[in-house]
Design a protein around this nucleic acid. Structure first.
Length: 524
DNA sequence: CATAGGTCTAAAT
DNA sequence: TAGACCTATG
């Protein structure tokens, strides 16, 4: 997902930061990435629909991070993405037909008053088109600027956010608030950085992203981020870049690529969002008449039309945007009436779920933006037990030896699932037997026979890398102790070294001196 | 050099 | 399963 290779390409513009940089600001949060990650800590309970406390561990995870932000005086604007499935790479032709058919059928049902059937059909339309809810969230995140005091940055794992034009995007924020940031302004006002985007504007940049291949449209064969950049950079105009590309590719370019291209770009620019004040769906940015014409008046790629009543219900968290059913009424015991306090970062609050301010919330279609400020009345909006989590076994933050030489942060992209819903699949994948961690802490059950156990690394706040010839089956466990000691315990030929270049990517230094896990290692 | 396609591996406490 | 890494191929 996201824009293929974008983060790697943009590496010169990505730098480590601590989230406290955004003290006093509003920061958007792509809630699903945290939900997914948090769900790993209690996947078993979720899968088995256990009643134990542990089942709500993911709330702790989420709230811990929310509290972290609030501790740093940041106003979190949490966005729940109700979208589903990334679009499959069906041909554009099929996509269009399917969408049209389902859309028509859905509209028919809707007129009959059968909202549920209609929305089911709408979903099919959506599933073959870009997941609109997903886009909307992101778009709203990036453009709330004028409306609600602005979103200074968005925390996400999804490289798409850059294409949407967020002011700043923070990727891979960890539990201490360390992350990797890309600031829009730095991209467009570069000082001697390569690649240069000095002559780009947001539209050109977005066009480049689409050309390189995005969730909504695969790239033309042979075109990747580098060529996309070259094209846009050279012609400085999307239409011209497109026609040059067409002349180069001939019929290697799908017939409707230009049309799809325009739609994809438009999705990044003009998503529908829910206007919290007027309580209806609107376009984030007006669609120019010119665009309407060039698209033949068809705008359904931006998502189905939604009547204000439905949109409002979704936005207020009363209606599941996926199945269009009302959420169950929660048991009274699950309600949390106390306002959230911003102090006490260590203590995790347990509102069962998202907290929403009635008067200050704003959201877009199929998602919820939840501002948290100190003195609001809070209200539970989505019960965890009614929103099953779809757990994906992905790996957003993999670090490898190759990252080490880089001055920049790792190039990985993110993964944000669009699933708003919910089943946890395949428990076997998360069972210990299938986990082969490269680095583990000293949880006994995780130890393996041939583990190399390192008792201590002295200065845990210092970056250290392990450069060894570790067998792939070896697991390295490192806890605080001296480096010498570490080396003495390593098998022959293996040693632990300090590596300057690891400084940023290797270690979560701030905040937690008790951390006992050296969370980086290299394998040769 | 850039891309496409295969292979490998995963989050959290 | 998706993403990140690796590499054969153009």
């Amino acid at each position: 997902m996201g824009i293929k290779d974008l983060l790697r390409f943009m590496k010169p513009y990505i730098a480590p930061i601590h989230i406290k940089k955004y003290a006093g600001k509003r920061v958007g949060i792509d809630a699903y990435s945290w939900l997914h990650k948090g769900a790993y800590s209690c996947s078993l309970e979720l899968c088995m629909n256990s009643n134990s406390e542990r089942k709500l561990k993911y709330i702790d995870y989420f709230m811990h991070r929310i509290n972290l932000l609030r501790h740093h005086k940041i106003t979190p604007v949490v966005v729940f993405d109700g979208g589903n499935v990334p679009c499959k790479a069906a041909t554009a032709e099929e996509r269009h037909r399917g969408r049209k058919t389902n859309h028509d059928l859905a509209m028919a049902k809707y007129k009959e008053g059968d909202i549920r059937a209609a929305t089911e059909l709408f979903q099919r339309a959506v599933s073959v088109t870009p997941s609109m809810a997903h886009q909307l969230i992101q778009h709203s995140l990036s453009n709330l600027e004028a409306e609600k005091g602005g979103i200074a940055a968005v925390i996400t794992e999804d490289s798409d956010l850059v294409a949407y034009g967020c002011q700043a995007v923070v990727f891979k924020m960890d539990q201490y608030g360390n992350g990797e940031e890309m600031v829009r302004e730095n991209v467009f006002n570069p000082v001697g950085r390569t690649p240069s985007f000095q002559n780009f504007d947001q539209e050109l940049f977005t066009g480049m992203c689409v050309l390189a291949g995005c969730d909504f449209l695969p790239s033309v064969h042979g075109i990747g981020i580098a060529k996309a950049y070259a094209l846009v950079s050279k012609y400085r105009n999307l239409d011209r870049a497109l026609s040059v590309l067409k002349s180069q590719k001939g019929n290697q370019m799908p017939e409707d690529y230009p049309k799809c291209f325009k739609e994809a770009v438009a999705v990044f620019q003009h998503a529908q969002i829910f206007d919290a004040e007027k309580k209806k769906v609107k376009h984030m940015k007006a669609i120019p008449e010119k665009l309407v014409q060039s698209l033949d008046g068809e705008l359904d790629f931006l998502g189905p039309e939604m009547p204000p009543s439905v949109a409002t219900a979704i936005a207020e968290g009363n209606l599941d945007p996926i199945n269009m059913k009302a959420f169950d009424h929660f048991p009274a015991s699950r309600h949390h009436q106390e306002p959230i306090k911003s102090q006490n970062i260590g203590q995790i609050q347990r509102p069962e779920t998202a907290v929403v301010s009635a008067e200050d919330s704003c959201f877009s279609l199929a998602k919820l933006i939840v501002p948290l400020t100190n003195n609001e009345t809070v209200e539970t909006t989505i019960a965890p037990n009614t929103i099953p989590l779809k757990v994906r076994h992905n790996n957003p933050f993999k670090k490898r030896k190759d990252d080490v030489h880089s001055d920049q942060i790792g190039s990985k992209t993110k993964q944000v699932s669009n699933a708003a819903e919910v089943e946890i699949s395949d428990t076997s994948n998360v069972s210990p037997s299938n986990i082969k961690p490269k680095v583990v802490n000293n949880v006994p059950s995780r130890k393996r026979k041939n583990d190399i156990i390192l008792e201590h690394v002295e200065s845990i706040g210092e970056e250290v890398s392990v450069v060894t010839e570790i067998e792939s089956s070896d697991i390295l466990c490192v806890t605080p102790e001296s480096q010498e000691s570490v080396n003495s315990k390593l098998p022959k030929g293996k040693r632990m070294v300090k590596n300057e270049k690891l400084k940023r990517s290797s270690f979560k230094s701030s905040g937690n001196k008790n951390s006992s896990i050296l969370n980086f290692f290299s394998r040769v």
